[in-house]
Amino acid sequence: MIRINMLGHLEVIGNGRDLAPSAPRVKSVLALLALNANRVVSTDTLSEELWADRPPRSAATTLQTYVYHLRRTFGGVTGGGVFGCDIVTRSPGYMLRVTDGRVDAEMFLEVAADGRRLWREDRVDEAADRLRQALALWRGPALADVRTGSPLTIHAARLNEVRLRTLQLRIQADARLGRHHELIPELRSLVAEHRLNEWLHAQLIEALRSAGRRAEALQAYQDLRRVLQSELGLEPTPEVQRLQTEVLGGMRTSGAPRLLRAS
């Protein structure tokens, strides 16, 4: 059996070893096929990924060579690819044929969607656990060591955006469950990484306030205000300003600004 991991450095795990190709363009072909597992990727899309709008005259032959090398990789692990992964020729291009659970990006999207469903059903504890499982699949930025052309850049951006949305929803679920003390260290790290994300700053302010650390909550607001003014020349949103006013007045509310949607 074989597993393809793309939520971090690209890995092809088979027989306990990482068999990922080292050649940059072969790696790009594999990543694009894996992100479209069980769907045909046209030779035009693969060519765009590899050479943008300037493919060489030998593009078709070169692409066939890359696919050949990948087929050898999968065949060496699975005895022809029948029981794990294989690449099949399907007009107008190629398809990576895999069984469920072989590609971590695909698994992430499925588990994250399940977490969102549980949230919509108000099964908050289960949603938090499921969302945490989805996030645990990540080992770093998507396709961290893959040279990306336009198609892969779009895929990676989508995955990274879904990751952030999933993280936000998991934080929201943990806050609903009263896990404010546990959230504070994580939120401090996140606001340092995402300095302009007001939603994360608001969650930190609310977590500190809910944990009884009012002075630190007010300082967290001032930190956000200083960052926005220095980098964008902006003030915090009215929602975050109201949160700061409520902290000053010692008022209790239903919490920091929530996600617009949980979809």
Rank of each mutant, 00 (worst) to 15 (best):
N5P: 00
H9A: 10
L10F: 07
L10D: 09
E11M: 15
E11A: 15
G14K: 06
G16Q: 14
R17V: 08
D18C: 13
L19E: 10
L19G: 11
A20K: 12
P21N: 15
S22T: 13
P24W: 07
V26P: 06
K27L: 00
S28A: 13
V29M: 06
L30T: 03
L33Q: 06
R39P: 00
S42W: 00
T43H: 01
T43K: 13
T45G: 02
E49I: 03
A52G: 10
P55N: 05
P55L: 00
R57D: 15
A59G: 02
A59V: 06
L63G: 08
L63I: 07
H69A: 08
L70V: 09
V77R: 01
G80V: 03
G81C: 03
V82Q: 12
C85T: 04
D86W: 07
T89G: 04
T89D: 00
T89N: 06
S91V: 01
G93T: 02
F108L: 13
L118N: 07
L118C: 05
R120Y: 01
A128E: 01
A128P: 04
D129S: 05
D129P: 03
Q133D: 10
Q133L: 07
A134T: 02
A136N: 14
W138F: 07
P141N: 01
P141F: 00
A142F: 01
L143P: 03
D145I: 12
D145G: 04
G149E: 07
P151A: 03
T153A: 15
R158H: 13
E161R: 14
V162R: 13
R163L: 12
R165V: 02
R170V: 02
Q172V: 06
A173S: 05
A175T: 07
R179T: 11
R179H: 14
E182K: 05
I184F: 11
L187E: 11
L187Q: 12
R188H: 08
L190P: 13
E193N: 08
E198S: 05
L200T: 05
L200Q: 06
A202P: 12
A202N: 10
Q203W: 12
L204M: 11
E206S: 15
E206C: 13
R209Q: 14
S210I: 05
A211P: 11
R213E: 15
R214V: 15
A215T: 13
A217G: 07
L218R: 12
Y221D: 02
D223M: 09
E231L: 14
G233T: 08
P238D: 02
P238G: 03
V240D: 00
V240N: 00
R242G: 06
L243F: 10
Q244M: 10
E246M: 11
E246T: 09
G249Y: 07
R252K: 00
T253A: 04
G255Y: 02
R258D: 00
